[in-house]
Amino acid sequence: MSIKQLTLGLSAILASSVALAAAPSVDEIVNRTNYTSYYQGQDGKAKVKMTITDSQNRTRNREFVVLRRDIPTTDAIENNAYEGDQKMYVYFNRPADVNKMVFMVLKKIKTDDDRWLYLPALDLVKRIAASDKRTSFVGSDFLYEDISGRNLQADTHTLIGTDANYYIVENKPVAADEVEFSRYVMYIHKTTFLPISTEYYNKQGEKYKTYTALAVETINGHPTITKSEAKNLKTGGSTLMEYSSVEYDVGIPDDIFSERNLRKPPRKLLR
């Protein structure tokens, strides 16, 4: 009995010391979060619905399908192997005035992204300048950078706390004058490394924007935020973003991300 308890105790000690030793570094935490947010699987597809609500409770909707393919062929976190260039194809269904419009991005880690817009009524493939990534995406409270990911090297990261559920990471911009925030705090779920909540503080130190995950599903083995909300505390506006038909490792061919498919959308993949 006592031997058994002792063994139990010892194993507990061992377990706890293993757990302590394995408490991930902040670098690992932010990398895993970056991975779960933007890089899961070799490729992915999702239908996205945005409901944009302004301070007077007027709503606008955006509906689009996103196809994504990663250039790196590994999902390994070690040495940031997962992290690399990505291709994205965004096909708009709603609102009606942007129906069939396509936005294509070659997201590049080291340089500015390449972007194209296809305007079907004009049959025009317009290459668009890499804009300020902290510009609103399609008029919503999500920014381009929220959709495509912010470069990890753009911020310094500090683990400022943990609790039963979360790693709490504070991020401060390296180039403070290039962004509108002074810092943001992420509550990263310990087991899934999903950013459950993110709070942005302006230069005056006031919290002005929050992002909250409202629903999570595990899809093809990948925990995925399927419903999230961005709230602008200054304007009173908010945007609800919902994902459906999420799939990973669909086998999206690389040549989908081409002018050919801007002009002739890959309908099978967009269903």
Binding site: I160, N165, H189, T192, L214, A215, P223, I225
Partner: peptide, 11 residues
């Protein structure tokens, strides 16, 4: 920091 956020529904 106050209290940490509640976990979303999926979890």
């Amino acid at each position: 920091l106050g209290s940490t956020p509640a976990l979303p529904t999926g979890i």
